[in-house]
Design a protein around this nucleic acid. Sequence first.
DNA 1: GAACTATACGGAGACACTCTCCGTTTTGCA
DNA 2: TGCAAAACGGAGAGTGTCTCCGTATAGTTC
Lengths: 182, 182
Amino acid sequence: MRADAQRNRDRIVEVARALFRAKGFDAVSMDEVAKGAEVGPGTLYRHFPTKESLYDAVLEAWAEKVNATVDSALALDAPAREQLLTWLTDYAAMLTEHKGAAARITAALGDPGSPFAAKCQTYLNANQRLIDALDSALRPGVEAMQISRLVGGVAAVADNSALPSDSVASMLAIVADGLLAP
Amino acid sequence: MRADAQRNRDRIVEVARALFRAKGFDAVSMDEVAKGAEVGPGTLYRHFPTKESLYDAVLEAWAEKVNATVDSALALDAPAREQLLTWLTDYAAMLTEHKGAAARITAALGDPGSPFAAKCQTYLNANQRLIDALDSALRPGVEAMQISRLVGGVAAVADNSALPSDSVASMLAIVADGLLAP
DNA sequence: GAACTATACGGAGACACTCTCCGTTTTGCA
DNA sequence: TGCAAAACGGAGAGTGTCTCCGTATAGTTC
């Protein structure tokens, strides 16, 4: 990639990250990002063919954080319920950091053609590792996809309604108890 | 209201209901509804100032169905778990009947200014009646708002991803077990 | 049934947004 | 320095929501 192209790409992602974080996905227009990054719309769209692909680039760091978060929850010297709750809470918190991300990633969970497919896989793998680790403490037959969708759904609701963290925690506690073996 | 106005209003709602049901909220444009009802955009917007207010009119019958559904679940001669699951499943099924409704109604749950405020109240009341009826079978301290948001979130995910009913059922079973007393 | 007024109609178009085309500019290399 | 490939950027096409206002109609009054 040419140096000017790289420069522009970096600036676009940086500006977009700030805007998305401040206003949420829907409230940010591509023109706004282009103006902020001081490039024309054409340049922006050559780097990122759709708004979603730009969002995907912005969430690049997110995937790494998911892995680190599930690791640290599983490393806890605590009962399975606490490990589970820690992970669910941390994950939901991570999602609501970027307004609109929860619904988008959750919606893409079953769609391999989505721009977020790679991120969905990371997330699914994290829940699979959780299942493998907690094993018999969990409800028999529970699947990574189920946990991913349930928690994604709760996170999306929390995000949409800008719920305080204790409301989210009480909902996640219900989900966690449902996930644990009877 | 003048007779021609009433006629037009009725036709608009009828056309909109069919379109929303067939294509989902987002995929239907107001121009499309206006053309289908053979009125100008101006007429459409005088009757319904926003697209959401039109959707609200379309979902008018929905509120009555909610009440009937919770009643019939509570009338079941069955254990609390089955009553709960029946209601949750029926409710989620009702929401996914209209693509996009789940997310919208759930998002409006805490917002009295929303065009869907009346429908949210119906839904919250239904869950409150459920709590009153099942009482000690449920997790202590559980609130109608929590159930509404949880199930709304699951329904929204199911709707977005067009999940088959058994996937939805398995997720709702997890939620139901979390809602029941330990 | 004709005249009149309040009410409703409907289409042109303002505005916002996503995304494209293509002439112009810049970069990196020979 | 000269040149081809790469990248730029802005005008504008296409689509959506929603508004303004001149025109048509319903319902009332004589």
